[in-house]
């Protein structure tokens, strides 16, 4: 007698017919598709450089290998780029830290008193809708053209997602748990510390991740306008553009994107370490 066929969820693999896909296979599944896209983009890049652009206009898009040799390979240029990145990173991280602190304090205050939320939330929305580029010159006018002006740009741009996500987290606490705290006559402080803040943490991390990306953008934008002291990577990008140095320009753009990615990834990791044990977002299976 033969055993009835088991329903197959995935096509059987030769090595392990019953076991779930190995770590290696899962890693391949996760990294394969984006790598394929990367390869396609690089291919397209070469095609544009060599097929679409006339040789004398090729400086508009130097081929990838030239970006690597001239942008990353030339140590004095790349060193300059890295120093710029460090300056910009410092602005972005200080701005993010201040925005996070202020944003969370604001959100907690709003969650504690309806009148605070009603009075301030509309202004937080207004802050969000102000075209930041329009007020950047004003910030320079008031605060000068150095570190603090750049930091203020980051704060303005990063504050709103922290406020909204934290507030959302604080307010989406389970009603049954609130009943339990009410029943046992918990103080407002106990409710905040033992119930509302822990249940808001996943949303806080979502906000932090969004704001981290925005803060990096804010710092680069600030670099374009405020050029006192150590030039940030934004001013380098501006300089390379003006002087038509396309290989270092591309290198600087790639380095800034990698930095943004790293920050985003770091906050994802922190979220996983801190709330991952009890909170799992719904995932695509």
């Amino acid at each position: 007698m033969t055993a009835p066929a088991r329903p197959q969820l995935a096509p059987p693999s030769a090595a392990s017919p019953d076991r779930p896909p190995s770590r290696l296979r899962r890693a391949a599944r996760a990294t394969g598709p984006p790598l394929a896209v990367l390869a396609a983009v690089i291919g397209l890049w070469y095609a544009v450089t060599y097929l679409a652009l006339a040789p004398r206009r090729r400086f508009l898009l130097p081929p990838p290998h030239q970006v690597i040799t001239d942008g990353f390979g030339d140590w004095s240029t790349f060193h300059e780029t890295l120093k710029g990145l460090a300056a910009t990173a410092k602005v972005a991280l200080v701005g993010l830290a201040i925005a996070a602190t202020l944003g969370m304090i604001f959100a907690v205050l709003m969650s504690q008193a309806g009148w605070i939320e009603r009075s301030f939330y509309p202004w937080a929305v207004v802050l969000q809708t102000i075209p930041i580029l329009a007020i950047v010159p004003l910030i320079g006018f008031w605060l000068g053209y150095g570190f603090w002006s750049r930091t203020v740009v980051c704060i303005l741009i990063a504050l709103f997602p922290i406020i909204t996500n934290t507030l959302f987290g604080l307010q989406s606490t389970d009603a049954g748990q609130h009943d339990l705290f009410t029943l046992h006559r918990a103080s407002r402080w106990a409710r905040l510390v033992h119930l509302e803040i822990p249940s808001a943490l996943p949303a806080v991390f979502t906000g932090l991740r969004i704001s981290a990306g925005l803060s990096v953008i804010g710092a680069i934008v600030g670099d374009f306008f405020f050029r006192e002291g150590q030039p940030g990577i934004g001013s380098l990008i501006d300089d390379y553009t003006r002087s038509l140095q396309s290989a270092p320009l591309f290198a600087a753009i790639i380095v800034s994107s990698l930095f943004g990615l790293a920050v985003f990834w770091l906050f994802g990791l922190a979220a996983h370490r801190i709330v991952g044990s009890w909170y799992t977002p719904r995932q695509r299976s």
Binding site: G176, Q177, L195, W278, Y279
Partner: peptide
């Protein structure tokens, strides 16, 4: 005194 209340949901704090 406060009564013991066992809700339909366990209402545990997941963290």
């Amino acid at each position: 005194t406060v009564p013991g209340y066992v809700f339909q949901d366990p209402t545990l704090l997941p963290w």
